[in-house]
Design a binder for these strands. Structure first.
Lengths: 110, 110
DNA sequence: GATATTGTTCGTAATTTTGCGAACAACGAA
DNA sequence: TTCGTTGTTCGCAAAATTACGAACAATATC
């Protein structure tokens, strides 16, 4: 059987992977953590917390925005970033369900 | 203030990011899902579920092993992969805590 | 011993990620 | 209008990721 005949990944798996990928860098975890704890929501303050250049911070923020985990709005002359609460809850549910799916009884693995 | 004077990322953030990164690909999510649901634990069966070459599957399995989410043991002539339950629980806790840390009251983001 | 089965490793290629400094854009303030 | 502040975008470089086929290793079976 050829690989190409097989099914694609499920939508759910794709979505969970997308969330996970967005969280797959310590800088982005730090950003999310910072925003979730409401220490501030401005770019400058976020940048100040991280050991990387502002251009790089901006890039990470863009990735988090693309993944749907945060939003960004201009509040001249600053830029305000916020947790996207709806998608945050969605991600939370995805991860919860995923981890909870592990079966207790394991006939295969001893 | 220079970027290099800033602190590194915290151990917890690094660890959570490592787990997330390992989960950041649909093939690896599928593998974990497959193993968690005990459909089987042999390489061949895992490979059969995925639309990618066996060399690539082997690579993904190695990454999951490196992240500590699964274990791999030879059971000649097959290879058996299992969820690393201790680290699975650890990851579960990390994600739970992370998502739960979002504050309700948000003075910054309206 | 010869052969088939099962996975890993190697070598390679294409793409993505991560990171930086410099340049730029947008706006408020002097 | 000029200047300073705030972030984004551009261009580039280095490294990591993803993927494949072919070759290889290990074992079971004939």
């Amino acid at each position: 059987m050829n690989c190409c005949e097989k099914q694609e990944y499920t939508i759910d798996n794709e979505q969970l992977a997308r969330f996970a990928k967005a969280m797959g860098h310590p800088a982005r975890i730090s950003i999310l953590h910072f925003l979730a704890n409401l220490d501030s929501c401005y770019f400058g303050d976020i940048h100040n917390e991280l050991p990387i250049a502002k251009a790089t911070v901006s890039q990470h923020l863009k990735e988090l925005k693309d993944a749907g985990l945060i939003t960004g709005t201009i509040e001249a002359p600053k830029v305000k970033y916020c947790i996207h609460r709806e998608n945050w809850a969605k991600a939370q549910t995805y991860f919860n369900t995923f981890f909870a799916s592990l079966k207790e009884k394991d006939l295969c693995c001893e």
